[in-house]
Design a protein around this nucleic acid. Structure first.
Length: 341
DNA sequence: GAGACGTGGGG
DNA sequence: TCCCCAAGTCT
């Protein structure tokens, strides 16, 4: 059977020697844990997001807003602009809601139980467990994509994702002890990210190789098995770059729900197989070419149109500021339009 | 359970 | 070029 204590000891020893140094991380064995605010903020930023992409955002956020109370006081539009480019914008809306909840309901002090954390906006099973383990050193079962991959290989689990999730959680829980729970969680994620990698695992460097069933099969990279996902459809749309002749561009605020919800955007048509050309104002519109963008569940070709004009229904924003506040798809379209104008 | 929800990097 | 993916959450 699986020698859980030996595997645990091997990975913690490995972590003591190989832990990555990250802006939000306390060194292995540190008695002073990272402040819960920083753990929470980093965990939200890291959801489906790589460390190199999230790190500069983390530095900017913590410099600008050193405490959760500082963050709670920020205007919605300012927060959304600061998040622009990071993606999954519901995270930003929930981040603000969570900061305000912690400030209003807990006096600016993060709750320490997994149950209370889980009730906060944008905090799901993974993040609640991660904050409990990393910030408060509680024996929480922290299961993310890395942990799922490590467990599926360690046990050569033949059940494909996502059906395997409950079983993978159960396996991960076998290793959760009262001893160094925060380090354990981070060790597992570092291993998954640096050694037990998705495509080409470095099994000759793996501290768990001695007990890995996946390695014994000869093809550990086959795990975790996954069920095929649906093909990505393609849509088209028009984007309108309206300028006022003095360097400002017309933006709109998108509805809170749905794609790019709560973000600033360019005026656009519907996005569909055959979008209608319905510019926001009558003006001398001219074509400026197109830009391509790929979202998680569809790809998009945006025909960019430019004109000079006015109107009261817009957020007239200096082009440079607009580029920074816009999600990437609109930043591309704006650049295209400005280059053609 | 399945689909919505971004982006940039790597093989 | 294309496809996969990265520390998920919500509905």
């Amino acid at each position: 059977m699986t020698d859980v204590p030996s595997l645990r000891a091997a990975l913690l020893d490995w972590y003591d020697a190989h832990a990555r140094s990250l802006p939000w991380r306390a060194p292995p064995g540190a008695t002073t844990k990272t402040a819960p605010y920083r753990v929470w903020l980093s965990e939200v930023m890291l959801q489906q997001t790589t460390v190199p992409h999230a790190a500069p955002y983390f530095e900017r956020f913590t410099t600008r807003w050193p405490t959760v109370a500082d963050l709670a006081a920020v205007e919605d539009a300012e927060l959304m602009a600061a998040w622009a480019g990071l993606g999954y914008y519901a995270r930003a809306r929930n981040l603000l809601a969570c900061a305000r909840a912690v400030t209003a309901e807990y006096g600016g002090v993060f709750p320490q139980t997994e149950t209370e954390l889980l009730a906060l906006p944008g905090v799901g099973a993974y993040t609640a467990a991660a904050v409990a383990a990393i910030a408060f050193d509680q024996p929480a079962n922290v299961v993310d994509g890395n942990v799922e991959r490590v467990m599926s290989r360690l046990f050569a689990l033949e059940t494909p994702l996502p059906a395997a999730r409950p079983e993978l959680r159960r396996l991960a829980a076998l290793f959760v002890y009262d001893d160094r729970p925060g380090d354990w969680a981070q060790a597992l994620m570092d291993l998954g990210s640096g050694v037990c990698r998705p495509r080409s695992p470095l099994c000759d460097q793996c501290p768990l190789a001695f007990g890995c069933e996946g390695l014994k099969t000869g093809t550990p990279e086959r795990y975790p098995l996954k069920t095929k996902k649906a093909e990505r459809p393609h849509r088209r749309g028009h984007a309108y770059v309206l300028t006022d002749g003095s360097g400002r561009v017309a933006l709109v605020r998108r509805p809170d729900k749905g794609l790019l919800g709560g973000m600033a955007g360019l005026p656009t048509s519907d996005w569909s197989a055959a979008p209608e050309f319905t510019p926001p104002v009558d003006a001398g519109w001219s074509a400026a070419g197109s830009v391509e963008h790929v979202f998680t569940h569809f790809s998009l070709t945006l025909e960019v149109h430019v004109a000079e004009g006015g109107g009261d229904d817009f957020l007239w924003t200096p082009a440079e500021e607009a580029a920074k506040a816009l999600p990437t798809v609109f930043r591309k379209a704006l650049e295209r339009g400005l280059a053609a104008a």
